[in-house]
Design a binder for these strands. Structure first.
Lengths: 206, 206
DNA sequence: TAGATTGTTAATCGATTAACAATC
DNA sequence: TAGATTGTTAATCGATTAACAATC
């Protein structure tokens, strides 16, 4: 794990790796920066610069060795142990990302999902879906460190109050409620409404 | 509607308005930049600068008139007509943001939700939930312009292929699949996996 | 008035992209 | 070799924050 990578670089490294894992041409062992850039619709210089930051070097003719690059990205951004993730009130969005988590090249595992509405204890793939009232207990028992939070506003405060009494270290917060959590918990907010209003704006001017 | 606002400013204006709409002290008619900044955990200069960009001026002593500011933000970022939004395969996340859309101070309305799994034609609040196979038909009939897309990878291509044959102008894309759509459609990507891996990174170094 | 806040410019910070020497 | 790509620095771009004159 490398210290002091820019946040956007970390995100992009994750995208590079995922794209390479799904790279169809299994016969190809190497890839050039402009080829990967084209696949991801970004600038080739960006890729070269990001790889420089993690100290990965390519071959001036063949480009980057794909498997080595995948491994190197893992060394740069993955944590040593497997971290568990929970989806709290997120329905299909969990399903939308679940495919990736079944691949072995990730240190993240979905360990539980929770719903605010009826169905207690149903399965989706191998993941158990619990009722929200069991959340704290399960988070602790399963040693879950990351959660994606997408519950109605009215639930948010109470739920975050419970989360801080577990071992959770990071929250992807979709609730548009400011979560009052101690510094040891890393929160990344995503405000769907603001994004929709932005979308509305740019689909009406541009 | 103002041309050429920076994207981040548009997003923040949306946040300012929402915060003010929920501002508890109904007796207060005015708010200072540092007060609003404190509520949103941002820098006061940011607020003053954003309001400058939309040409809203405050009172050097009383601060900003709340109702006028709400109205002005509407003039700056809302489009003239009400735009309809659909949630495609998003479950509870829709519920998480639904409260806001019931307020009258928004030009966005949730007009439909779609599921890839069983329940066809159920209601959630006043919004009908359809089966995904009816999507194109409903999008057209309801004249929907914005969609939030969060379906499993395997569905993404086919669904985006249908979306481009409707009047949809903007997509919030949670699928982590690159959507091949014409330029007239504005796509904003959000990659949950990359965000989770970033979260993992920063909860293990910082 | 004295003190505080706005409106706005300038400075800073970070992220993206261009450019190009070194390489094979 | 000639031509193309990497690795890296410098330039650019945009976004955030600091600073402060003007104001009441």
């Amino acid at each position: 794990m490398i210290k002091d990578l820019p946040p956007n670089t970390v995100e992009r490294l994750s995208l590079y790796r995922r794209r390479l894992l799904n790279y169809p041409n299994e016969d190809k062992l190497y890839i050039h920066s402009h080829k990967l850039a084209h696949l991801l619709k970004i600038n080739p210089a960006h890729i070269r610069r990001d790889l420089m930051l993690i100290g990965f070097t390519g071959d001036v003719h063949k480009g980057y060795n794909i498997q080595n690059l995948i491994d190197k990205i893992g060394k740069a951004i993955d944590c040593k142990h497997t971290q568990k993730v929970a989806f709290i009130g997120i329905g299909d969005l969990g399903r939308a990302v679940a495919d990736h988590f079944n691949q072995k090249e990730t240190k993240l595992k979905i360990a539980a999902t929770f719903r605010t509405s009826k169905p207690p204890k149903t399965q989706f793939q191998e993941v158990t879906c619990y009722h929200i009232s069991d959340m704290k207990k399960v988070l602790i028992k399963e040693n879950i460190e990351l959660v994606v939070l997408a519950v109605p506003r009215s639930y948010a405060k109470a739920i975050s109050g419970e989360i801080i009494r577990t071992k959770v270290k990071g929250i992807l917060n979709f609730t548009s409620v400011h979560l009052n959590v101690p510094d040891r918990i890393f929160v990344e907010d995503y405000d769907v409404i603001a994004k929709l209003e932005k979308l509305s704006f740019f689909t009406n001017t541009a």
